[in-house]
Each structure stands twice: as C-alpha cells, then as structure tokens.
Design a protein around this nucleic acid. Structure first.
Lengths: 340, 340
DNA sequence: TTGAAAGCGCTAACAA
DNA sequence: TTGTTAGCGCTTTCAA
C-alpha cells in the first residue's frame, strides 16, 4: 500500500500508518500506559510484527528522564576478584532492570582516566560504580562529576561517596592471629599492589603483629602476577627465620608455595603459607590453601544496592560492610619442632 | 542575572542564554562542527564551565544516527576464558570509542534469554557480540533480531553470523597426538559442558585417537567446577588402564590432578594429565601444566574487529580463526615402564 | 560567522 | 478510547 519500503528501519510513524491509527495509540500499546481497544491493539501489534518494528531506545531515553544503565569503572576486569565483583553487580542490576557498561581504566594517569570517564559520561547514565581496588580506580573516582550518583567499592573505609567494603583489616588480623596462635614467632607478608599507601590486608597484618608484640618484618611487594610470588617464595625459602607467610591474595600464595617448593621447602611442613580471597582453585591446590573467603559477587551486589538507594532518594544506607570469614585448610600448621 | 538557578541539570539553552548566543552556536563549539568566533567561543566555554553543563547523551544519541555502544551477551562473565575475552573486547572497543555493555544469560531457557535480550535491545546499540561458549550463549544468539549487526565467538566454525574462533579441534588433536607420541596407548578425556552436542576439543581428541587407531574411551563429563574434576580424578586414578588424561580445561585438569593425588597416583609419574587454555595458574601448578594456550583477549579483540568491519559496511572478513599453540610443561610424560 | 527554523522518534498532556 | 498538540535536548539545514 502506502507503506514506504525504504531500507531505513521502521519508526513508530510507519506502524501507525500501517495500522491506521495515530502515533500515540501505537505508543500506548507499546508502553501499556493506557487502554486501547482490542481491535486497534491487534492491528497495531500486527503492524509491529510485519514491519519488524522496534522502538528507538535513543528516543525513549530522551523523553524518559530516568536512564536505566549504570557504568562500572575498574582498573581490570578479568582478574578473579574484579570479575566476580562485576558479575555480582551485573546480576543485581539486571534483576532491577538496569544495563551495565564496563570501562577499564588502564592506568592512574590522566590520559587513561580521561578516556574512560568521558566514554562513561557520553552515555545516558543512572549512576556509576567505581572499583577502587587499585590506583587507577582511585584516580577515576576523583574525576567523576560530583552530581552523578556514585558508589565505590574498596577494601578500606573512607569518607566521600557511599561505599561497599570488606573489612579486610579485621579479617587479615584474624588470619595472622591464627598463625601466631599456631606458634609462629612472627609472620612474613607478601603484599599485592596497594590501591593507596597501604591496603587493609597489610594494616591488619601489622596490627596483629604489634598486638602480639611480635617482630614486624619488612613486607615484600608482589605484582598481580603469580610468577612474582614464585620469585619471592624462592627468596623467602632461603631465609631460615621465615616460618609463616601471609600473602596478599591466593594467587600470590600459590606462586609463593611454588617458589618455596622449588628451593626444597615443604608447605606447611617447613613453612606455613596463607592467602586471601578464597580463589576457586584454593581448595584444589596442594596443599589446600588456608585463606579468607571474600564473597566478591556479594560485594558487587551490595554496591548496586547502595546505588539503587541513592537513585531512589532514600537517604538510607551509605555504607555496607562485611567481615570475610577465615577458611582453614591445610597450608598452615605449627612451626617445625613445635607440637601444638 | 536571568539565569534560572533551578535544581535541574543545565541544558544547552541555559548555556546559550548565559553566554548571550544562540543554541546552535553552543552546539557548534560543543561539536567543533563549524567555526565560531573566538570571542563567542570563549563566552560559551565559560558558561559551560560555570554551569557545569554536560550535553545530554540521550539527546545526542537521538539525533546522531550512529550509536557508539556494543553489547556483549554471555552465559558467564567471571570464569577465566569469559572474563579474558570480555577484557579483549572492551579494550578494542574503548580504543575505537565504543562503550561495552555486558549482559549475562543465566540459562538457555526462554525466560533468561528474553530478559537478557530485551535489556540489550532497549538501549541505543551499534551491534552485539555473543559468547557462544555454552548453551545459554547459543540460545541468546538465536533471539537476536537479524537486522542487528552481530558477531559470535565460539570454538566451532559454523555458518550464520560472522565469527571469531579458536581452532580448538586442531589444537586438541595436536595435544592428543603429543600424548600418543609419548607412548600412551590411548588418552582418556574429561570434558567440560559442551555448548552444543560436541565441542571442538572433544572432536579433536576423538579424531586423533581414530587417526592413531587407538581405542576411544567413553569421555567423562565434568561441570565447570574444579571440584567435579577432582571427583573424576579419583575415579580415573583407580583404573589401571588410565595413563593419560586430556581435560577440557586447565581448571578441570587441576581438579583431576588433585583427585589422582588423593588416591595415591603421581602426575606425571603414574598418569599424565593435560589441560586446555593456559590458565594464569597453569605454570604455578605442581606439576606445571602441559596445555594449549588460548589467547582469549585476542579472541575478543578479533571479534570486535569483525563487528567493526560489519558496521563500516566493508564486507571484508566475516571470519577470524587462530590455532592455539601447545605449551609443553611437566604434567605429561611417557607412560610408566616405557623410556621414550 | 551567526541565528531562525526544522527535525531526530518517541511519550505526555490535553481535548474531544 | 482516541487523536491533536507539545515537547524531551540536541544537531542540522537554511538564510542572512
């Protein structure tokens, strides 16, 4: 008929014409916002179907003042903790009808941060969640305009925007106390790259040692790569004073154990090693890793809840914390020559 | 002055008024699309700054016919291969000025798929990348309207939309041949959940065995959890005929090794075990895992390239394949009693 | 170089 | 229940 068979995608006007109704009527069946007679509804539905019409998301976004998408900014997306956190955010967001965009902030430098932030701001946006696990995340958070609803996720409590956190310091403290209780004179520490000056894990370790009046050895710095743990493990294995090692995460712990093994040390026979996170492979490791369980998906989910609260103007909670529990497996034992 | 100090975010009209110019002039300095006198430009810039004005992404999206966002649909986002693939997509997309949304398809059932797909279609969209690593991804792909530029990622070549793939079958074949060359009479197989009837890894394994006229044992089915590998490992360890095991991925291989160890078998002394993927922890494992390296980030990047080609109307390539190389470490050796 | 006018595709307000 | 009339906040003609 008069339907223009143009190659452009059909718009609402095409549907209206085809169904012989007005544009708002089509809109009404689309949104269900108002009653439409069965007869016209059917005609509209048929027209939509024949034309394969899909309403323009852009046009809808313009008229509806409430974007249904949230952005996640993160320094990484594939490492275990990051990926799980994002999974948790996405799941909650999806269930609440929000779409999630992810944008990586490669480095804490201005160029990376600006690219990421401007990409994020160039979309219709309900709010932002920033993963502040590393300096890149910290830098990104500072560049988010303050009028945008924002929630951060990190290991340390701070002021500022609403946050979801793990009480890492307390958990680390428990873990180190556990090692001390086993009879170790002190506990060495291999830390992962901190997001700021010092991470909660390191703080908790330090606190536990001071509390016990134990010597505080200089912490060793690993990268995010397990391989760096291995190198450090070899070195630590050569030091007879080292009987217990607390690693910043499980992957580093695995590397450290490998390094120790390579220089002839057994775990936990000669040296106890504990990690942090409860990585999916922690229980498969030999020996199975004693660690702290961080439920990252839940962390992400809690962050989304905070954001949703922010968006709904309920000035409810602005903070969500959880204390990660110890998971005792087999990689830590009393030091040699001591029966517990 | 006449600036309305309303609490609503400023719009372009506010800027124009404040700068004493017309709206199109503001638009011109925003987009740089046309020359504006220095004097007015400065006034506009100042007004933008004072008002903290940011152009509405929704309005821009409506008028610009080219959305700069792509959607990724996946059955999972945090497992290693998935997360790395997404990282690769995001990186390439970001560099090309695209934003990436991720949406998980929880199950292959209609309800999950419909939620995910409609969420995706409800946004301004340039194109879609579907991770077809599992049945959920396969199901999602079928529901994407055919007029939307779409690329799929999977392990098996198929017709239909453009695809980025690994030549998994060929790689698996090489890996199994390697085991056979070591002297094993046959190779057992523990497979991960297939996306369809049979995955490339299984096909390659079967092919290599047939080629060598070796017996083809019934494959064992693992879930995605390493724990399931452990259970299977214990069982296989009890079977004296088992001297070599090819696992569907490294995490399962790690579980299988753990299970073997638990029933007193040594790897590779008693049984050789190989994996697939080259997981970041594969080299840290004891013994370090012999496997196949899949560069998932590159896979994601290649998928994005295909999508970009599709969007630019260059009917260039519709397919991108890569043969993942063997990584020989220490978890496979000649069978007991045989010197190679 | 600039402004007035005209849309982008949809939903909301208002009559009828 | 339906259609007409107005926008949403921008960019893009088109004149001047």
């Amino acid at each position: 008929m008069s339907t223009a068979p143009g190659s452009k995608p059909p718009v609402i006007d095409d549907v209206a014409r085809r169904a012989g109704v007005s544009v708002p009527t089509v809109s009404r069946v689309l949104t269900g916002a108002a009653k439409v007679s069965d007869e016209k509804r059917l005609r509209v539905l048929a027209a939509i179907d024949e034309l394969k019409f899909r309403p323009s998301a852009a046009a809808r976004a313009l008229v509806a003042r409430a974007p249904k998408s949230i952005a996640v900014l993160a320094g990484d997306t594939s490492r275990y903790g990051y990926a799980e956190t994002i999974r948790g955010i996405e799941e909650s967001a999806r269930n609440a009808g929000y779409l999630v965009t992810i944008t990586v902030v490669e480095t804490p430098h201005d160029d990376s941060v600006d690219v990421a932030v401007s990409l994020v701001l160039n979309q219709p946006l309900a709010g932002v969640i920033v993963l502040k696990f590393d300096p890149a995340g910290v830098a990104a958070l500072q560049k988010i305009p303050s009028d945008i609803p924002t929630v951060s996720i990190s290991g340390l409590r701070e002021t500022g925007v609403p946050q979801a956190v793990f009480q890492e310091a307390a958990a680390a403290e428990h873990l180190v106390e556990y090692l001390l209780d086993l009879g170790h004179k002190t506990v060495h520490h291999v830390r992962i790259p901190p997001s700021r000056k010092e991470d909660g894990r390191t703080t908790g370790w330090r606190r536990a040692l001071k509390e016990a009046k134990a010597e505080v050895p200089e912490p060793r710095d690993a990268t995010w790569e397990p391989e760096s743990g291995r190198v450090i493990g070899r070195e630590l294995g050569l030091d007879p004073n080292v009987t217990a090692i607390f690693c910043g995460n499980d992957e580093i712990a695995m590397g450290v154990i490998r390094g120790l093994t390579e220089v002839g040390k057994s775990v936990p026979g000669d040296v106890s090693v504990v990690g942090f996170d409860d990585h999916p492979l922690a229980a498969m490791w030999s020996p199975p890793l004693t660690t702290v369980r961080q439920d990252f998906a839940d962390l992400g989910s809690r962050a989304f809840d905070l954001l949703e609260a922010l968006l709904s103007d309920h000035p409810a909670k602005r903070f969500s914390a959880a204390l990660p529990p110890l998971v005792i497996r087999e990689s830590a034992a009393p030091p040699k020559g001591r029966v517990n």
